[in-house]
Write a protein that binds this DNA or RNA. Structure first.
Lengths: 224, 224
DNA sequence: CCTTACAGACCGTCGCGTCGGTTTGAAGCG
DNA sequence: CGCTTCAAACCGACGCGACGGTCTGTAAGG
């Protein structure tokens, strides 16, 4: 693979490529970390566990990552874009802001449901670690809240819903979904995460005063 | 000075103080644990820290508590009843189920706002500890969700709101409030936690299709 | 004098991070 | 084209601090 370097220092010998497959071991480390962190939590996971699960070594690990924190955050920052992208794609497929929120909710639930480990790390293990962890994690969560808020603002602008404190609403929505998912992750209830979608969807849409009807021929002229 | 316990302190009316004051040191340990856990988190807090903050000793600590886990749970199980009691009292003061939910929300926000440390422990530090911690914690949270659900069920029975999946709604509500409080705890936004009450109240009540106007005489404008 | 409630020195473990060493592949060079 | 060189990439034993838990000792009360 051609990974361009921004080594523009002087004009002379360029392109030093990799020796053994660097990027691959990094990937293996990250993959192993995902598994181990999800299984044992941040504190419960020893660096040696990750080493073992990745068929790598201490030296390899600390060559790629400064310390345990570093790989944890690298993991989170590699994972969230995937979630964001999935949600973004779902949003882009809809035109109406309310329908976008609806789609985002469905995709979010589906994604969490499909990627337990990712969800566990993002929503459970990454909480309450102290230090600057909490702030960092909150910023990540904030990105999602901001996504929601943006759609809400658009919906308000479009006159689809009344004006409101969209920031609070966005965080509340995130929290509501988060709690449902966390409960599912820890106690296995409900069996299928997606089964709460209808109730949650109805609840959330009603909470912003949007019509709960979106099926086929949707006409907003009906009197609630 | 007003120590953290202005909710309700329950002291033994009759004292058979056998040797030295046993119950008092236990209290001091618990108080110190509350402070230390809130400040440094579960893993960040060393038993020695709690010892130091309580002017006790290793021997004393392990006389009263089997291990670190034990004092943590003892703390949680000493704290939640206070919260529950406060909410219960607020609920009892109202007759209408919807008004009860309203009151519960207000009191919950007030209580969290007043007891940062308690909130931090219950809502942040106690998450993602692994082992059987998560399950236990979820059960504690479940008690609150159950409280909400009970009121919702009553409201449904009373015909105040339409039938719905009250369990999911209860958890979603809890999650919504939780997220707002956690955000406030970690980033100090919003400055005053209570400032989100109106928006949250409106949001939650609307989410169950309850009329958003219930306050006695808070506004002088038109009412249905 | 025996038990309860506590004190504080001590010990064993565990896990993070380091550090010298080794392999690997790409240049330099004749 | 082989031989040397060099640094990037990787290995794994060890150090070392921290922290949970134990154990012996001791003041006080019955």
């Amino acid at each position: 693979m051609a990974t361009p370097h921004d080594i523009s220092d002087n004009a002379a010998p360029r392109g030093h490529t990799h020796t053994r497959d660097k990027e691959a071991t990094r990937r293996r480390l990250l993959d192993a970390a995902e598994t181990v962190f999800a299984a044992k939590g941040y504190h419960g996971a020893a660096v040696d566990d990750i080493i073992a699960a990745s068929a790598s070594s201490k030296g390899g690990f600390y060559f790629h990552f400064a310390n345990k924190e570093a790989i944890f955050f690298a993991l989170i920052e590699a994972l969230t874009p995937k979630l964001e992208a999935a949600v973004d794609r779902a949003i882009a497929a809809e035109a109406d802001p309310v329908a976008q929120l609806d789609a985002a909710l469905r995709v979010a639930l589906e994604t969490f449901s499909r990627h337990r480990r990712l969800s566990k790390i993002l929503l459970v293990e990454a909480v309450g670690l102290g230090h600057g962890f909490d702030e960092k994690l909150l910023r990540v969560r904030g990105r999602f809240a901001a996504m929601i808020q943006r759609r809400l603002d658009l919906a308000v602008q479009a006159g689809r819903i009344a004006a409101m404190d969209t920031e609070t609403v966005a965080w509340a929505w995130f929290g509501a979904v988060n709690e449902i998912v966390v409960r599912w992750l820890i106690t296995g209830q409900p069996e299928r995460l997606e089964s709460v979608f209808p109730a949650l969807r109805e609840l959330l849409l009603r909470s912003i005063g949007a019509p709960p009807a979106t099926p086929p021929a949707s006409e907003g002229s009906a009197r609630p």
